[in-house]
Design a protein around this nucleic acid. Structure first.
Lengths: 133, 133
DNA sequence: CTGTATCCCGGTTGATACTG
DNA sequence: CAGTATCAACCGGGATACAG
């Protein structure tokens, strides 16, 4: 037991920190936003509701599976409202909720920062890679 | 060839959109920030430079490998400055660059939004899961 | 049109061990 | 102290086929 305690304590400490990190609201938000397709979907809907098919054309990079998966996740989190109109063919609209709309300005800020500063990042990266091989 | 053209065109269109998405500065930024450990490291260094070991304690959830990997990536992108002092034992400091510091306010904004709104997300999620099984 | 179900590959992550 | 190396596991994500 004493021989295990050191490793055990480290493991416990790590689990603890992982929990804290997972519990941190900011990290949880970044987890969502870090998702490959979620930001694209959000932006696609910023100008107004769209139907599934229109979304799949706007976010053309995403496979059917990933698009649906992303939509479900965003709906579950309360960022999207899904409205299904029965009939044949089926018709489903997706729209941003007020919650999502309150997030858009932040995404815009990020986009602005990115547009202004990513070139710097690119140069830094190129320089770094040159110093190496 | 005609039998392939439809699928081929779809594939091309998808590749095209993928390229565009990958080229978008905002997406590239979110890719970095979506990284599991990068935001934690950035926040850990917000109060001042830290040595490797101090970082590994602050960001205790990360394995050695992931911490090093994250630090390298951030350094390459010009967010971190790495200062190695020769000698035994070795001593290495990591500090934010002005570029990274200019990003901190945005991260703070995100954190504020998250703190205020993530509870809402949690409730939405719980409600969604209740409606289902 | 709007999805769901299945298979599967590749990259990312983590555990562990070793080094200057 | 500050890493590097290697290996195994996991999982995100795409292709494909099928369904209401």
């Amino acid at each position: 037991m004493t021989t295990l305690s050191a490793a055990a304590r480290r493991a416990a400490a790590r689990a603890d920190h992982l929990d804290r990190a997972a519990a941190c609201p900011a990290n949880r938000l970044l987890d969502r936003l870090g998702d490959k397709w979620a930001p694209l979907v959000l932006r696609a809907l910023a100008d107004g509701p769209l139907r599934y098919n229109a979304l799949s054309r706007t976010v053309a990079g995403a496979s059917q599976k990933m698009l649906t998966q992303t939509l479900r996740a965003l709906e579950r989190d309360g960022f999207l409202r899904r409205t299904a109109a029965p009939g044949v063919p089926a018709r489903v609209d997706y729209a941003l909720t007020p919650l999502a709309e309150s997030l858009l300005p932040l995404l815009d800020s990020l986009a602005s920062w990115a547009e202004e500063n990513m070139p710097r990042v690119d140069r830094s990266r190129a320089a770094y890679d040159t110093r190496r091989g």
